[in-house]
Simulated scan of single mutants.
Amino acid sequence: MPQHPPGQPGPTGGRTGTEPVLARSALGLRLVISSVAVPLFAVVTVLLSVWAASSSETDSPSGTSLSVLAAVFGVLTLIAVVDLVVVVRRRRVARAAAREEARERGDRD
């Protein structure tokens, strides 16, 4: 079986589909979504936790199911926070690279 160089299409290469070579995620959109999701999920987590703590054994929904929902929203909050940190870091790196590129172009002109 022939070996394919890294990054070339094939069973051992990196690209397997028709995606663009320089595909980039929509960091601005991800920033907005994460910025809205973090406080929203955090508030829902707190509200469900308080509701679970104040519910009795005979209440419906039960305190256990409310606690599970609170835990799910807590995990969603953490995921949104991690995504927010990643997006901010990527934007910072991209801005620094753009400044460096502009500086290099300015030095050559």
Rank of each mutant, 00 (worst) to 15 (best):
residue 1 M to Q: 14
residue 2 P to S: 15
residue 4 H to W: 07
residue 5 P to E: 14
residue 5 P to F: 09
residue 7 G to C: 09
residue 7 G to T: 10
residue 7 G to D: 03
residue 7 G to I: 13
residue 7 G to S: 04
residue 9 P to L: 11
residue 10 G to I: 14
residue 10 G to L: 14
residue 12 T to L: 13
residue 13 G to C: 11
residue 13 G to I: 09
residue 14 G to C: 15
residue 17 G to K: 10
residue 17 G to Q: 12
residue 18 T to V: 07
residue 18 T to H: 03
residue 20 P to S: 13
residue 21 V to E: 10
residue 22 L to A: 11
residue 23 A to W: 09
residue 25 S to M: 08
residue 29 L to R: 14
residue 29 L to C: 10
residue 31 L to P: 01
residue 31 L to D: 07
residue 32 V to M: 10
residue 34 S to A: 15
residue 35 S to R: 13
residue 36 V to P: 02
residue 37 A to T: 13
residue 37 A to Y: 05
residue 38 V to L: 12
residue 39 P to V: 09
residue 40 L to W: 01
residue 40 L to S: 07
residue 41 F to A: 13
residue 43 V to K: 06
residue 43 V to N: 02
residue 44 V to A: 01
residue 44 V to R: 00
residue 45 T to M: 08
residue 47 L to G: 02
residue 47 L to V: 13
residue 48 L to E: 07
residue 48 L to K: 06
residue 50 V to Q: 12
residue 50 V to K: 07
residue 52 A to T: 08
residue 53 A to T: 11
residue 57 E to S: 13
residue 57 E to A: 15
residue 58 T to I: 03
residue 58 T to F: 07
residue 58 T to K: 06
residue 59 D to C: 11
residue 59 D to G: 05
residue 60 S to L: 09
residue 62 S to V: 01
residue 63 G to L: 01
residue 63 G to M: 08
residue 63 G to W: 06
residue 64 T to L: 06
residue 65 S to T: 12
residue 65 S to N: 08
residue 66 L to K: 15
residue 67 S to W: 04
residue 68 V to A: 15
residue 68 V to G: 12
residue 71 A to T: 15
residue 71 A to P: 03
residue 73 F to V: 03
residue 74 G to R: 10
residue 74 G to Q: 10
residue 74 G to T: 12
residue 74 G to H: 05
residue 75 V to P: 02
residue 76 L to S: 10
residue 76 L to Y: 02
residue 77 T to Y: 03
residue 79 I to C: 06
residue 79 I to S: 05
residue 81 V to D: 06
residue 84 L to R: 10
residue 84 L to S: 09
residue 85 V to W: 02
residue 85 V to F: 03
residue 86 V to N: 08
residue 88 V to E: 00
residue 89 R to I: 07
residue 90 R to T: 13
residue 91 R to C: 05
residue 92 R to M: 00
residue 93 V to P: 02
residue 93 V to A: 05
residue 95 R to I: 08
residue 98 A to R: 09
residue 98 A to L: 00
residue 99 R to C: 00
residue 101 E to L: 14
residue 102 A to N: 05
residue 103 R to K: 13
residue 104 E to F: 07
residue 105 R to H: 04
residue 105 R to V: 07
residue 107 D to R: 14
